[in-house]
Design a binder for these strands. Structure first.
Length: 567
RNA sequence: CGGGGCGUAGCGCAGUCUGGUAGCGCGCUUGGUUCGGGACCAAGAGGUCGGCAGUUCAAACCUGCCCGCCCCGACCA
């Protein structure tokens, strides 16, 4: 490809729109063009990379016995009402009416369609196991699109659905996918961490996420350096440790003038936060919830949401707290009536806690569970952080940010039951099909790859997903031997089957080198009067500092070899 | 949806407070000189100042309403 003909120009300045590195580089290289929030046109270079990712994914899906199909973007809303997900997704679902006033949606994912498909085409245990997948554009009206291609409203995703006769069967399918995903990231030149994940509102038993570590990631990954436990912070379990466990003493009031926060209490009473109980207030589906947790811990809202089985959870407003007759800053679970109380299991980690007195400037000592207060639910609702202790080996956790580039989980029979996807076993008995689903965001993977592979000059593409393999960079003068040689080498490289981006512009060396670095094509070949004197060219990896001088004679096969080794 | 920021040429920005004929840099076009890490000279093209309404002799600038984009949070199937 000649750069003079390439659609999409580089841009020197960082676009004001973009905060995230990948977003900035995608815009500066002219790889994408924003149309509206969370919606982009994919330009030629990005399209080539996306296709390469897609082909790797497709190949691995096929190897794992997946069969490719394509399912429609347009789906009847009715189908989503049947599965109950219309309500769960709410405004995230793009909904509109057709000319007959039938409600349609733009598919945000395809569990419903594929389950109906299976209901119709799978009858017998002999039809199972079955794995079908598609690579399709999906639509989700995200509350907040973000960071260029990281969180889009229209994006390309691969999803595979597995159908098995039982739990044992789906475990095999699941393991196959786990392996396929590992292969995919590896083949794309990306380092992904596999983490235990929360499976969300419709989860099943297992769920794993694949995270590419990067600062701009949306998720926090907790990992144990010693035993290797890794999990999304949403899900991570940890050892909260015990605190002082003297025999329970009698409750006692203690004046705490002006002290409201745990820190203030620590300083004033000369005690550790671990010795206190903290109150946090939420509205769960518009019902007030009083949450109690040990003072040194934070509430994990995902865990809390799961414990409450609610759909909407948010912090209560000051007014809502007041309405319940609770004194913020001195709130206490002791003596509460008619209010839902959820306690973190850390209330059992010690005795004689300090809690609020439910009056301003007053706290109470020696509070013990369950002696002194009632909890409707006691569960693990603590948030693991860097420095928390591993539940398995008690080492200190580390934490990194990551972009979720894949999520796989066992669905069980949730959809097959609702949508009537059954099979007949050998004894003639009907059972719901056991399902799994396995998603992988391709557009997001492209962005994540740039997040993981760049420097201050630009992108550094891994060879397998680079838009082009070789950047041919003659330092030009028209009608000179350099020009002539460059043309010849370009032809030879292309004849050897290499993908060449040929910088045939009449630009100064500075501009060409800087653009080459920005584009991040893995191999750069420079031709100049200087190299021609020695009948040679200069060959440089984008990822390395030093260049090598190589003879022009036979250059195509040498380059071919170098490229192949990185594929 | 709550909080914050922004909207002026393809991109980055100034001008808005204090109303008076829209500017700078990059990029683009033409010609010339340059040529190993974002060269230089000269001449040009390019704008419904996000939209609508209002105030005014006069609005990019003041007022009101609306729209869009970005960031933090909520949310993330």
């Amino acid at each position: 490809m000649r750069l003079t003909k390439l659609f999409g120009k580089t841009q020197r300045e960082i676009p004001a729109e973009a905060d995230t590195i990948s977003h900035q580089l995608l815009l500066r290289t002219g790889m994408v063009n924003q149309v509206t929030a969370g919606v982009y046109t994919i330009m030629p270079l990005a399209w080539r990379s996306l296709k390469k990712i897609e082909n790797i994914v497709r190949d691995e899906m096929n190897k794992a016995d997946g069969q490719e199909i394509t399912m429609p973007v347009l789906q009847p809303l009715e189908l989503w009402q049947k599965s109950g997900r219309a309500e769960i997704l709410g405004k995230t679902l793009f909904t509109f009416n057709d000319r007959r006033e039938h409600s349609l949606i733009l598919g945000p994912t395809h569990e419903e369609v594929v389950t109906e498909l299976a209901a119709r085409h799978v009858q017998s245990y002999r039809d199972l196991p079955l794995m079908v997948y598609q690579i399709q554009t999906k639509f989700r009206d995200e509350p907040r699109p973000r960071a260029g291609l990281v969180r889009l409203r229209e994006f390309v995703m691969k999803d595979l659905y597995s159908f098995d006769v039982d739990e044992a069967g789906v475990e095999i399918s699941y393991q196959k996918m786990l392996q396929a995903y590992e292969n995919i990231y590896k083949r794309c030149g990306l380092k992904a961490i596999i983490v235990e994940a929360d499976s969300g509102a419709i989860g099943g038993k297992f769920s794993h996420e694949f995270m590419l570590p990067t600062e701009s990631g949306e998720d926090t990954v907790i990992s144990c350096p010693k035993c290797g436990y890794t999990a999304n912070a949403e899900k991570a379990v940890f050892n909260k440790g015990a605190t002082k466990s003297d025999p329970p003493a009698a409750i006692e009031e203690v004046a705490t003038p002006g002290r409201k926060t745990i820190e203030e209490l620590e300083a004033f009473l000369k005690i550790s936060a671990r010795q206190t109980l903290k109150a946090v207030f939420y509205m769960a589906d518009n019902k007030f919830v009083f949450v109690v947790i040990r003072g040194d811990l934070l509430v994990n809202e995902i865990k809390l949401k799961n414990a409450l089985h609610c759909q909407e959870l948010r912090l209560a407003t000051d007014a809502e707290v007041k309405e319940q007759g609770i004194v913020a800053g001195s709130a206490s679970p002791v003596g509460l009536k008619g209010i839902m109380v959820v306690a973190d299991d850390s209330v059992n980690s010690g005795t004689n806690f300090i809690a609020g007195g439910n009056k301003p400037d007053l706290h109470i000592k020696n509070v013990n569970y369950p002696r002194d207060f009632h909890a409707d639910i006691v569960a693990d609702i603590g948030l693991a952080e860097a420095g928390s202790r591993c539940a398995k080996c008690n080492s200190k956790f580390g934490a990194v940010r990551g972009i979720e580039v894949g999520h796989i989980f066992v669905l069980g029979t949730i959809y097959s039951t609702k949508l009537g996807a059954n099979y007949i076993d050998a004894a003639g008995v009907s059972h719901p099909i056991v399902m799994g689903c396995y998603g992988l965001g391709l557009s997001r993977l492209l962005a994540a790859a740039i997040e993981q592979h760049h420097d201050d000059k630009g992108i550094i593409w891994p060879m397998p997903i680079a838009p082009y393999q070789v950047y041919l960079c003659p330092l030009y003068r028209e009608g000179t031997k350099v020009a002539e040689t460059a043309e010849k080498i370009n032809a030879e490289l292309e004849a050897a089957g290499l993908e060449v981006l040929f910088d045939d512009r009449l630009e100064s060396p500075g501009i060409k080198f800087n653009d080459a670095d920005l584009y991040g094509i893995p191999l750069r070949i420079t031709i100049s009067p200087r190299t021609l004197e020695k009948n040679s060219v200069e060959v440089k990896w984008r990822a390395e500092k030093e260049a090598k001088i190589m003879p022009i004679e036979g250059i195509a096969s040498v380059i071919k070899q170098m490229v192949s080794e990185k594929l």
